[in-house]
Every structure is written in C-alpha cells, then in structure tokens.
Design a protein around this nucleic acid. Structure first.
Lengths: 248, 248
DNA sequence: CATCTCTAAGTTGTAGTACAACTATTAAGG
DNA sequence: CCTTAATAGTTGTACTACAACTTAGAGATG
C-alpha cells in the first residue's frame, strides 16, 4: 500500500524526500490520527505506506522528535507526545505562524496595519549587514487565531533582496510564501527570547490589557549566509505554547 | 584510522552510539577544530575516523544540524554555521545554569531557601505520573551571577526515584551531578516558555522590583520515559540572554 | 490463584553495499 | 575570455542483514 502524499504537499516547496514525509506525518499527527501517548506505526510499516526506504522514515521521525511531536524509544516504538489544544510551536523549526495556527485546527487571520519603505535604523543596518543609507521595508501586522489576536509582528526587510511584486505580495499573504516565490526563503535564524510587559505593543481594540508578551527577536539568513530580514514577534502570553525538546 | 572517543565521554553516561558521536563532534566544533564557514570531513571519512557505519554519522550530523551548529548541503558537504560564539551557548545547551554562568566569565553562587518533602500537588502528580498521595521533594533556590540574582528555581522531584543520600547532596550541589551519582540523570526534557509578571516569585531583598520573568517550565525524563523531576525556572528579564538557533 | 522466570516476537539501532541526485571543479571547444 | 561538457566528489535514498532493546505471553513455581 502506498500513500499518495504528494498532492498534500503541493503548496510546500517540498525539500528532500525525508522532509516531505516529515511534513505529511506532522499533518497526520496534528489532525489527531493517533491519540496522545499512543503509538504510531512502526518504521517498516511507514516505509511501506509511503513507499520509501526505512532510512527515509527514520530521518523524518528523528526530525519530528526534535520538534517535540513524538518520542522514539529503542525497541518499543514512536509515541505521540501529549499536548493540549493551545496553539503549539517548536522553537527549533522555522515555520510560518499562520500556517502553524491552521495546522493546529484553528482559523488564522492576518491584518496589516502599515507597510512602508524607509531608511534603515542603526540596529537594522547592523543586523541586515547594510548601511543606514539603504532602504528597508517595514511591515506591522497582527495575527489572530479564531478571532483572537495572538501575535503582533514587526518585520524589516532588506529591500535590495526583494522585487516590487514580492513587496506587494508580502502585505497580503505570508512572508515565507512570498519569499518562496523568488527562491529567497530563509534556512536559518538567530533568535533572542525576552519577556516584555508594555502597553506600546499592539494596536486596536484587540490589544490585550495585560500587556504581557513573549518577544522573539530574530534575524533570518539565507543559505549563503546573507541576512534577508529581521522580525520582532510579540506573542501574547498564554495564547501560544512553545515547546522545546531538549536532548542531553 | 579510528578515533578513541570513548574516554572523552567517560563523564557522560553515553546514550546511543550516534549520540556519542554527536557529542564528540560537538566538542570538536566548539573547540574550533574547523573555522566558521569551513567544511568538516565527509561522511565516509568520519565513519572511518570513528569506526562506525555511515548511517550513524548521518544521524549525528542531522542532530548537529538541528542544533544549528552545522549546515548540511546535498552534494557538497557539511559546513560550520557562521555565527558568533555567543550563539553557541544557546537554550538547547542549558544543562547546568551555574556552569553556564561560569562559562560566561562570571562568578556563580547558589543559595537554597528551602528543601522540604511533602505531598504532590495536582499538577505535579500529572507531570510526574504519580498520585497526589505520593511524596515529592520540593527545593527552592536562587542563583546569582556576580552577586546579582538572575534566576529563581523551583524544582520538584519524585521521591520514589531518589535515595536519602542523594536528597542530602541535592541541597548543596548541582541537581544533575547528584542524579548522576545514582545513574538517574535525565536524557530528555520537555520545556515550555512563558512570560511572567508576578511579585510572588523570588524572595529576599534581591527580588527584582520589575517582577518580570522568563519562565522555563520543564519536565525531565529518564531514558525509559519516566519523569524524574519538574523544574520551574524563573529568569529575571534582562539579566539572562537567551539566544537560540532556528533551522528549517 | 498469584508470582516469577524465561522465551519469543516485535521494534528501533547499527552495519554494509549500491546507486541516484546534486555540487563543484576541471577540461574542452568556440 | 566565455560557455559548455565531462568528471570526480558528496549527500540522499534504497535494500538487506543483524544487533540491542522492549514487551507480551507462556510456563513453571510457590
């Protein structure tokens, strides 16, 4: 038996075969095909299902383990890690926030507050390895899950790496899909984590009263090492669950 | 040629063969055996060096890639990630907090506020997979760097897994070294990150006025999957900088 | 019946070989 | 000089075989 999983991945840029299998397995897990704590099929059976070699399945499962979705036990099997209903994301994987929300079964909505091109600030010039004379694209957006704002996002792009078409697409859709269209998708990011309490973050009536955020300050890099954009992402505390799988 | 890497790992209880190779390769990387951006030996040569199969090397390299230390390129090779040194003291390598502080060049000091054995709370019983009738060891400690408190720590152990000698040792020294003495060191941990604003955290006059913390809520597991202890670690915002790698 | 021990089957971990897919270098040709 | 093609080198995948480990069950033992 062979699962035709290619069509399920048509949106993704589909990396290696193992990455495709991993992404498809992640969807199956997040759709609760197996119960939390339950055991997923063995590597031989999965290799049969996807019609790939066992080593490919193993590579995919290892990746899912580092993402905290499963727990592999020698001689026993791979088990679904139990997690609640809240939107959940691993910090070690570079993914679209909106897509993560959708995969968790929620309705994701994104609104753009502003999108301007201006000179780079001092810090932005350093992070993006440009000068303060160069132009950057600054976008402020809010992302909601099931009608509730969970993320305020401030992104700054190096305009020199973009095209006008992409800039327009960026304001409406996902950043990553827009970058994908010109084959400039980031493969690595350097991120700082901070706890922030501020009333200056966010806007509109959706702004949470607590003013408590988990700030993820990132610089995203292309494969060749050049920085493509920086992002200050403010996660409303309690609305987003971050999981880290720590292996010794 | 075969590298005798076993003795280099004598302190660790060495997990799988691939994990041992990964740990040894990580040491070689952090000791700058190869320059940032430089290429490490191919999989065949590494398999030769360590006298293991190529699949074992591949498993180790994939793990190092998810940790952000290397960058594997199909058809080319594996390259040392080109980031600063600070990045490599990231969240995934946070084993002992005191040791991390010392590695940063500061003086680490740890004071124990209380150490009691009591019944487990509801949440603790769930996390440790015990009942509320079972006993737990609860330790409250503060960790200071150069005289300033940077971390408040609340750890809760499953007493059934401990011995009286270890409990005594736990109060004075590092948790991990104490657990090591009875071969019960955690190999996996699941961590949640939260932003917390509270005046109930911490104690003494070292308690920060802001009351703003980055909470690392962890459950540590043994190799067989049984939870050994939970830890709520409150990092005083601004005093401790987390830098992590994000890979696709 | 309850409990323990051992066996057996099932699963992941490692070894080894072979080839496909991709990359970077080099050589040939204009 | 530039472009193109051949070539060697590297990672990705396939396949087989066995080792190491876990679990469940049969069977012995009290």
């Amino acid at each position: 038996m062979s699962i035709d999983f290619q069509k399920n991945l048509s949106k993704e840029t589909s990396g290696s075969l193992a990455d495709q299998v991993r992404d498809h397995l992640r969807i199956r897990i997040l759709r609760h095909e197996w119960l939390p704590g339950g055991k997923i099929p063995g590597e031989f059976e999965l290799a049969d299902q996807y019609d790939v070699a066992r080593v490919t399945i193993r590579t995919a499962l290892r990746s899912l383990e580092t993402q905290g979705l499963i727990d592999i036990r020698h001689g026993s099997g791979a088990y679904i890690a139990d997690f609640g209903d809240s939107v959940r994301a691993g910090l070690q994987e570079l993914r679209s926030i909106t897509q993560t929300i959708r995969e968790m079964g929620h309705k994701a909505e994104m609104t753009t507050k502003s999108s301007v091109i201006r000179k780079a600030t001092h810090q932005e010039a350093i992070d993006l390895q440009i000068t303060e004379e160069d132009n950057v694209l600054h976008i402020e957006r809010a992302i909601a899950a099931d009608g509730t704002v969970v993320v305020f996002s401030y992104d700054t792009f190096n305009v020199a790496e973009l095209t006008p078409a992409v800039i327009k697409k960026m304001t409406n859709g996902s950043v990553f899909t827009a970058l994908n269209s010109i084959r400039k998708h980031p493969v690595r990011a350097r991120a700082e984590i901070h706890a922030i309490s501020s009333t200056d973050i966010g806007w509109g009536r959706d702004r949470p009263k607590s003013g408590l955020y988990l700030l993820l300050r990132q610089v995203h890099y292309l494969r060749n090492g050049t920085p493509i954009f920086t992002g200050d992402t403010y996660f409303v505390e309690g609305k987003f669950q971050f999981i880290i799988h720590r292996t010794v």
